[in-house]
Write a protein that binds this DNA or RNA. Structure first.
Lengths: 288, 288
DNA sequence: TATGGATTGGAATTATTATTTCATATTGCC
DNA sequence: GGCAATATGAAATAATAATTCCAATCCATA
């Protein structure tokens, strides 16, 4: 180890990636316990970010002092400054996308041409896709697909902003030869359409705040008929969630007052194609 | 505030979303300084996660004791337990990212569940967004917006797979109070609708291979009436391109036989909102 | 405008946590 | 195998941070 005095100008890794590289680089030459905490740090960066020296040391199976020595070997003056790097990493991961969107919003407001608007919508869509990738619950997806695959007819229920998703679902179900019924408002025959649904059918209902009253009303009616509902909505407090057998929370980023639909679309397509696959599999089994 | 003894079983928000909802819910009834720190907490959740009581209090412009009172009012026994919720939020956001990667790896190895389908659609959407970001021509965007902004009525023309985009455009134009007409196939009155269009109007037409014959036919008719067309399509050889004053080439990635719509949607929204802005600006100028 | 209760600020206190120290163990080298 | 250098464990200490307490202030109400 360097024994230079306080004048030495050793480079201290300031960002996580550099730090990671440094650790990996020196891995071979580290003493046993230090190597142990080094491995732990790279495997559990979140724990380093939030834990106390004592708790981290315990999880990693070393003494707190070892943790501090580890930090010092890397050029930090203590555990606390090492921890800063791990915290900064978490902070940046989360903020980068949001900040980008905010910057774009500001640019668009400042009248920076229409390209800025376009970029904003692209960014909003990307953000939404990222979010849903992280938050979607696999089990819910399986449940929803199982439920829909059993249905004789799939009713698709959505108005206004969510309506495009409904039309796409209806289109895709049609292409997959799955019987479905889009509940449109145009002809004013919704009540009759809904009355045909039975517990052997199923519903995909989509609604976001501010929830279209008609969608909520129709969802209530149809659920009272015993028809199971799969809902796509934006919060646990959504009125749709309470009628649904399975519901998905989708948080879409917005830009210029319009929310993205990209996450909802991806989920909708996954449901649709998932149902198609499940039916095909079931069909094969029955024949065999 | 409740003065019940320690036996009371008040529900303490354990996850960030519940906490957020609780704060929003009580917002009105909170004392001034507490409300101040509440607002700060929701606006700067990362600071709460990482800061110390003193540093946070300073940033929010209150005393540390106020911060603790805030936590206690929410049912926590101190700042520390409140902070846990904010930390958990960051941790989850972050860890699920890793989990996603692991899930993808698992999928590659063994029997792909329905999650794989979902990931596929997300990937297709992301790819499409990336592509269009790179390839979109700013000048075309400006031209198209200028053309549409002058129109008395904007006709929106799309069938089948592109139809969801058309409905979203119509919805957004409506919200922006821009006169528009969606050309639907349902009522079979398309020919009449189209015949009303004049050169003072404009059309947004959307069609991808295999081009819906009806869309092409209607686009031809309407362009022969001298109505300018903005087209969104997938190739220079598209029949739509030849009728259009301005056209965009959008390459959407596909998955499981269904193409993404995310890029088309982003472009459609940019056009719509761009027109809205241009109109507003023009309106201001005219008044001045 | 006087009065009681709630709210707030700021310092004192307590708790927690990082760091240091030193005795002990381990390792590499002659 | 013995010696020096290095590494490690455990407890003491120092630093930092959370919490509490009390006086001052604000606010509603009579």
């Amino acid at each position: 180890m360097s024994l230079d005095g306080p004048t030495m100008d050793e480079r201290v890794p300031r960002d996580f990636e550099t730090l990671r590289a440094t650790i990996l680089d020196r891995r071979e030459s580290l003493p046993k316990r230090i190597a142990q905490i080094a491995a732990y740090a790279l495997d559990n960066p979140d724990d380093i970010a939030f834990g106390t020296a004592a708790s981290i040391a315990a999880s990693a199976g070393v003494q707190p002092s070892t943790l501090i020595r580890f930090a010092q070997q890397l050029g930090f003056d203590g555990f606390t400054s090492l921890q800063q790097v791990f915290r900064e990493r978490l902070r940046e991961r989360n903020s980068s996308y949001d900040e980008r969107l905010q910057a774009l919003r500001a640019k668009a407001e400042g009248g920076a041409g229409h390209r800025a608007i376009f970029d904003g919508f692209v960014a909003a869509a990307s953000t939404s896709l990222n979010d849903i990738s992280r938050t979607l619950d696999d089990a819910h997806l399986e449940d929803a697909i199982a439920l829909l695959a059993k249905a004789q007819t799939i009713y698709v229920l959505a108005k206004r902003r969510s309506y495009p998703v409904a039309t796409y679902i209806a289109y895709a179900l049609g292409k997959l030869k799955i019987r479905n019924q889009l509940i449109e408002s145009a002809a004013g025959l919704n009540a009759e359409m809904i009355s045909f649904a039975t517990p052997a059918d199923a519903v995909i209902a989509i609604s976001f705040s501010p929830y279209a009253p008609a969608t909520i009303e129709e969802a209530r009616t149809i659920s009272e008929q015993g028809v199971p509902i799969v809902a796509i909505t934006d919060s646990a407090f959504s009125p749709l969630a309470q009628f649904a057998k399975v519901w998905f929370e989708v948080a879409e980023a917005d830009f210029a007052g319009f929310r993205s639909l990209s996450a909802t679309m991806a989920l909708a397509m996954a449901l649709t194609v998932g149902v198609g696959e499940k039916r095909r599999d079931a069909g094969r089994k029955r024949k065999a």
